[in-house]
Nucleic acid binder design. Structure first.
Lengths: 210, 210
DNA sequence: TTTCAATGCGAGCTTCATTCATATTTTACT
DNA sequence: AGTAAAATATGAATGAAGCTCGCATTGAAA
């Protein structure tokens, strides 16, 4: 069983210690991301990534123990970005909003993150299948963030409640918005409204006063 | 864009026309399923599958155009099983149940299906990453079933409503129950209750009379 | 300057998935 | 039964991709 850690995973790739290699590593990651978006993870070869990043294959493997580690590094990058994005929703101004508005903004926030980051989709579409631990680690971080939000919304929540509600919101609602982002624009808009309704009705059952 | 079809996918594998090959094909599928559960899709090799099923590698490729087709065949098998399982929820006795009870049974039904079928998890964990079309095809079938259920619950629903609600229930709630099935028993029970609440509150907003 | 760690490099090894030419068995039809 | 066509059987060989390894070069600390 995988122990749930409260810190971000160490990351399986070797971080360069010299400046010149930093730029190469970042180039590899950027190229990899682009190729994963265009062709999918499986179709993109390590040779291709190395070639387009203009580094020899040996150098690629100097920093990434294997192909999957490249994907993990991208996942790490994105998870941090998403968590950063979520911080706005912990601010007092946000927390004091009526629940309706809060939920609406939150849903839209998540959605626009997905929409604006084509690489996110390409990355996590592979991740959640091939590397459940990594996916789990990302979700854990998101759930922690959500738990903090819940406590701010209602200090009386037990830890168990927070745990369960955060799980529901991340897995159910998060997945819904994620799935919606792959749908045609019109239907997607409708689905976002549904996601709001889903969240709102559920949260209301825990926060009746709002 | 992938067109949404209302029929089950043709299936990319060649169905045997002679009895002797049926048993071999089924043996290959059974062995593949077991290996995918034990080692995961990527780790299981076609040679291994062929060897354990006691057929030469050439024979395997006689029926399955590639490794992925084996996985698809398993997905087909399971989707049909799940849809069959869902039919109970379209019967008049079920439909007439109070919404609370209906939702409870439904949630439990889905959950026990996941629990009782270890192969389902192993199969779809690969599917939804590596072969989105297949996953989509399965979800489409489930959504169709759910749309029929919705119409029976309330004949006044528009087609758009049914489409949206079914999408939400399959993607959000389905995914939640799926995720819960990978959690420790105690937490899992709690999550199932949450899944019920989530569904119930959401459906109630569309079916106030219940 | 010396010295060692960090980085650069790419031909070649290994491990799969997949093919193909050929042999055998089953089915359909006379 | 006899025979042609279709279906099935077979496994050595091919090719593609991930990854290794020994050696060369550069950076930085002493």
């Amino acid at each position: 069983m995988i122990e749930k850690s409260s810190v971000a995973m160490p990351g399986r790739w070797r971080k360069p210690k010299q400046a010149r290699s930093w730029v190469r590593v970042n180039r590899m990651l950027d190229v990899a991301e682009a190729l994963f978006v265009e062709q999918g993870y499986a179709a993109a070869t390590t040779k291709q990534i190395a070639a387009e990043a203009d580094v020899p294959i040996g150098t690629l493997y100097q920093f990434f123990p294997d192909k999957a580690a490249i994907l993990e590094a991208l996942a790490e990058r994105y998870t941090n970005l998403l968590i950063e994005r979520m911080q706005v929703f912990e601010t007092p101004e946000m927390i004091e909003l009526p629940l309706e508005d809060y939920v609406k903004r939150f849903t839209e926030g998540i959605d626009s993150f997905f929409t604006e980051s084509p690489g996110y989709r390409a990355t996590f579409i592979e991740i959640n299948t091939a590397m459940p631990e990594v996916d789990q680690a990302g979700d854990d971080l998101l759930m922690q963030a959500y738990k903090r939000i819940l406590l701010k919304l209602n200090g009386a929540f037990t830890d168990d409640d927070c745990e369960a509600i955060a799980f529901v919101m991340i897995k159910a609602v998060g997945n819904l918005v994620w799935s919606a982002s792959g749908q045609p624009p019109e239907f997607r808009q409708r689905l976002l409204l549904e996601a709001e309704q889903l969240s709102l009705n559920y949260l209301k059952s825990y926060l009746p006063e709002a």
